[in-house]
Nucleic acid binder design. Sequence first.
DNA 1: TCACTAACTGGAACAGTTGCAGTTTCTTAC
DNA 2: GTAAGAAACTGCAACTGTTCCAGTTAGTGA
Lengths: 190, 190
Amino acid sequence: MPDSPTPGRRERKKAATRQAIADAALELFLEHGFDRVSVRDVAERADVSTTTLFAHFPSKEALVFDREEEVDAALAAAVRERPEGQGVVEALRAHALKSWVPIVTDPRRESFTALVNGTPALREYGERMWMRHADALGTVIAEELGREPDDPACAALARFVLEVPALTAGRHDPRATVETVFDLLLNGWR
Amino acid sequence: MPDSPTPGRRERKKAATRQAIADAALELFLEHGFDRVSVRDVAERADVSTTTLFAHFPSKEALVFDREEEVDAALAAAVRERPEGQGVVEALRAHALKSWVPIVTDPRRESFTALVNGTPALREYGERMWMRHADALGTVIAEELGREPDDPACAALARFVLEVPALTAGRHDPRATVETVFDLLLNGWR
DNA sequence: TCACTAACTGGAACAGTTGCAGTTTCTTAC
DNA sequence: GTAAGAAACTGCAACTGTTCCAGTTAGTGA
């Protein structure tokens, strides 16, 4: 949060435009379905040109996944600022339970989750974006453990941890699944 | 190999057309880069209409990943037909070392690998296609161990194993990476 | 040989995305 | 306060992947 003190009119208007586009998109997608709404429709509803829309979002799918920064930072923090003596895996388990599970199970997000899971393009885009954090997380883990930045075991751990949300998707008990998967990561197969 | 005995002229021609398209695509992609070649170019070179091209391949990316069947079958076989007393993880490790590593390290594939790894769209498409085998593999593992077909630990193991190729991409010693990752899967994180 | 049908064709159309030239609106330095 | 400069926005045309459609060609099987 570096720029709380009134970012100037221009930046405020820009943010407002972006928000208007995202809102229009979500509204239309939830009402008619992602595939039956064109980006021109979204732009129309938000009262901007499609050119402007693409100046704010790199793709149609990105309209749905607004606000996904801070993830890198949150992951890094979870690892770096873990309690004295706690292992990396345990720290990530705690982070998953505290930060991811509530999101998945939040009833207010139900329609949103249904939209994403019900649209292959969105689901895949979401997972792809999500997996982009793997490099950063792997590097942080390696750093924390004093290994080479591209240590294969650290890279593997990072990718495996990031698979967790995909593994919980559509299950009745996400919490239990998270526990199971982290047990596997910690203790190995058997 | 169910239809070796002369599949008839029609089927042979169809296969030839498909092959011509795939060949033309690879040739052009290797020469100019994936993004600088349009599907119309490919169709032109293969001397077919773009309509025909899309009758054989579901997307532009699919032109590159020809022939990727048998993967499900090979994975299932690796698990099911493992030696008496060998664990599932060890069986998959052996399969990875025997079947995947040689492909990645084959010098004849160098330019192909460079094309895929150098084109984000292709790399992501490849990984996505690859991950589609996760459900099947997870089910086979569960079955082999007498668990529920959607057992979370089995699903997790399947996804993790399928991440291995992605984890070896671009590393100087794929074999060592495979070993490291499977050690992690078998023994857990310390 | 003849009907049947799968493969192929050409072209139009649609949707996502980008480029471009020009306009509006905010910012900043005078 | 004003003028230069930059950023955001506009409208439109173009390109690309993909699909649709109506028709042609060429194996197939009776």
